[in-house]
Design a protein around this nucleic acid. Structure first.
Lengths: 341, 341
DNA sequence: ACAAAAATTTATCGCGCGTAAACTATTTGC
DNA sequence: GCAAATAGTTTACGCGCGATAAATTTTTGT
C-alpha cells in the first residue's frame, strides 16, 4: 500500500492535516474538537491505523484512563463473573480496566496494590480479602488512589462501599426455610475467610430469635479459600458426629453448600424437599454453579448486575470530581428456589 | 520523617550516592552492577521506597517486561486456574503479567489483541478461542508479537504450541471405560466451540475401532460457552428420545458432563459404577469442580502444572532470543477415578 | 605494585507525547 | 456585516527515563 507507517503523533498530524496539539486534544477527548476536524482526524486514523503510544500518553497525562479491578480469588466463578461485568462497564465508560486477583493471600493482595500504584490508575474497584487484609496497606492505598470497595467492606475505607445486604440475604432465606419446613441450622467455617460470613451468622441468629426458634450453628474446621473441600470434610464430620439437630441446613455460602452436597452424596444422605429426603440444604450467593449441583441448589443470589453497575458508576462519578461523603450501598438478594430446599 | 519524597531517578541517584546511568542499569538488571553498588542502591530503595516510573521506563526500553495472558473465558474455572499458574510463573521469572479474557467472543478476542499491542508486551501466552477466532487477526498479531499458543492450537501460529494430548486423553479414558463396563458412547456438542472437541471425537472413534466396538456419537444442539446448560438440555433430550445406546457416556468435556449429571438427576437417572446405577458418566479435563459433583466425576485431567510450566518456559526462552523451529508439545493426561464411572 | 579489565561517572541526546502561551483563522450571534 | 467567541496553529518546553561515548575510577590478576 502507499500508506507508509506512521511513527508518532507528529507524523500523524502531518498526514491528517491537523496540528499535533489539536490531534493530542482529540485523543484526550474526541468531543473537544470541531466536528469537521474530528472527521478529518478519524479519516486519517482509519487510513493509517495510528494509535498514540500508550506509555508516552500515560507518562504525561495528569490522569490515566486505567482502572484496576481487584478480587480476592479469580478462580472462584462468583468473583470471575462480577469482575467480568465490572470490566464491561469500564470499557463502556471509556476506561482501560486491568484485572487482578489476590489469590486468597493477604501478602499477594498487598503486592497487587503496589503493582497498581505503578500504573497510576484513575481509580480502583477493590474487593478486599476482608479480615485477612493488611489493613494498614489498604488504608495507605486508599489514601493515595481513588478506590471503591465492593463485595466486602473493611471499615469506612475508600470512596464508598457497594455490595450485598447480607443481613437481608440470611434473614430472607432463613424465613423461607422456617416457613417451608423445619427451622434451619447454620453451617459455616469456624474461622471464616471473609467478613460477610460474620454478618450472615448474626443475621441467622437474629432471624431465628425473631421467629421464636432455637438457633444452631455448626462451625467447621478449615482455613483458606478451598471452601468446597472445607464444606465436604466438615459435612462428613458433622454427619458422623450427629451435629445437625434439624433436617434443614443453611450454609454460609454456596461453595460451602456445594461441598456439603458432596458429603451428603458420599454419606448416602438424600437431599431435597421431597418427603423421602433426609435433609434440605440451602446456600447463599447465587453462585454460577449452583444451578448444576445435584440437586440444584436453593440459594439467595447477589444482584450481580445492580452491584457491578452501582460500583462502577460510583467510581466513575468520583473520578469525574463528584465529591460525596463515604457511603455504604447494600443491595438486596433474590431468592432462587430449586430442589435442594 | 526526614526522608523527603523522591521525584525521579535523578533525585534517587543523588540520595543513593550512585550515578543515574548506573541506577538505571540496576533497575534493568540488578545483577549487572557490582555487589557493593547494588547494596547501596537497595539500601536507598528501602529507605526512600523509590520505584522508577513504569511509563517512562516502558516508553524507552527496547523491550518491556510485560507478558499478556489471554484465555477464552476467565469465568471458566479451568481457564482461571491455568491462568493463575501462568501468572505465577511470569512473576517468578521477573515479568509483569496482565490477564485478559476473550469472553468467548471472537470480536472481543481481536479487541484484546489490539489492547495487547498497545502495551508492547515482550511476549504473549494465548489460548485462542479456536475455530471461532479471527484467523487473520491472529496471524497478524503473531507476526508482530512473540506469541505462544496454549490449550488449543490454531494452525502453526506463533512460536510454538503447548497443550494437552487430546488424542491420548480420549483414548485412555475410552480404554478405561471399555475395560470396566459397557463401551461408552460419546456425548458432545454438534457445533463444538473449541477445536479440541474434534480431536477428542476422532480419538473416540479410533479407540472404539481399535477395541472392536461400534462407536456412538450423540451430538447435541447449542452454541456458545454455556456448556453446563447445553449438556443439561442435551441430556434431557437424549434421555427422552432414548439416544444413549449404552449405559456408559463419555462426555467431550467436564462442563458438558456436569450439565449431563444435572439432567440425570432431574430425570431420576442414577449415575455411578455400582450395579444399581443406570448409567456411568465420565468427563474430560480434570475441571476444578469435577471433584464436587454428585457423584464425583471420573475424568482425565490436564497436567495443569506441566502445561503451564512448559508454556511459560518456552515463551521466556523465545524472549531471551533462543530461536527454535515451531513445535507442538502435547502432554498426557492423568485418569482420575471417581464414583461417576 | 603494575597493567589490563571491569565498573562507574559525566555529559548529552532522544523517545513520544502533554501542555501552555501567543497568535491567527473560523464561526457565531445579532 | 461586524465584533465577539470559539477553534486551531505555532512555538517552545517539560516529563522521566534509556542509551551511548568518552573520561575516570576501581578492581583483578599476577
Amino acid at each position: 500500500m502507499s500508506t507508509r507507517t506512521i511513527r508518532n503523533m507528529e507524523e500523524f498530524a502531518a498526514v491528517s492535516g491537523i496540528s499535533r496539539p489539536t490531534v493530542s486534544k482529540y485523543f484526550h477527548d474526541p468531543e473537544s474538537v470541531r466536528a469537521s476536524t474530528r472527521a478529518q482526524i478519524e479519516a486519517a486514523i482509519e487510513k493509517y491505523d495510528y494509535r498514540p503510544n500508550l506509555y508516552a500518553m500515560n507518562q504525561n497525562r495528569k490522569l490515566t484512563k486505567n482502572v484496576g479491578i481487584v478480587v480476592p480469588l479469580l478462580t472462584d466463578p462468583y468473583f470471575a463473573e462480577i469482575a467480568r461485568k465490572l470490566e464491561r462497564h469500564c470499557i463502556e465508560a471509556g476506561y482501560h480496566p486491568t484485572l487482578f486477583s489476590s489469590h486468597g493471600d493477604p501478602a499477594h493482595e498487598t503486592d497487587v496494590l503496589n503493582s497498581l500504584r505503578a500504573i497510576r490508575p484513575a481509580g480502583v474497584l477493590l474487593a478486599p480479602l476482608g479480615r485477612a487484609s493488611d489493613r494498614g496497606a489498604l488504608e495507605r492505598f486508599c489514601a493515595d488512589v481513588p478506590t471503591l470497595l465492593f463485595d466486602s467492606n473493611v471499615g469506612e475505607l475508600g470512596l464508598a462501599f457497594v455490595g450485598s445486604d447480607n443481613i437481608q440475604f440470611t434473614a430472607h432465606i432463613t424465613d423461607y426455610l422456617c416457613r417451608t419446613g423445619e427451622p434451619p441450622c447454620f453451617f459455616e467455617m469456624k474461622r471464616p475467610t471473609n467478613p460477610n460470613a460474620h454478618r450472615r451468622r448474626q443475621s441467622y441468629l437474629d432471624a431465628m430469635a425473631e421467629f421464636g426458634h432455637e438457633p444452631h450453628v455448626i462451625s467447621v474446621e478449615g482455613d483458606g479459600w478451598d471452601f468446597e473441600e472445607i464444606g465436604r470434610l466438615g459435612g462428613h464430620t458433622a454427619f458422623s458426629e450427629g451435629l445437625f439437630p434439624t433436617n434443614s441446613i443453611l450454609c454460609s455460602n454456596d461453595r460451602l453448600a456445594i461441598g456439603l452436597l458432596t458429603a451428603c452424596y458420599e454419606k448416602g444422605v438424600t437431599v431435597g424437599r421431597g418427603p423421602d429426603c433426609a435433609v434440605r440444604v440451602a446456600g447463599q450467593d447465587g453462585h454460577p454453579h449452583s444451578r448444576y449441583t445435584c440437586p440444584p441448589l436453593t440459594t439467595i443470589s447477589h444482584a450481580y448486575d445492580a452491584v457491578s453497575k452501582a460500583a462502577s458508576d460510583a467510581l466513575f462519578a468520583a473520578i469525574n470530581g463528584e465529591v460525596t461523603p463515604w457511603s455504604s450501598t447494600r443491595l438486596e438478594g433474590r431468592l432462587i428456589l430449586r430442589d435442594s430446599a
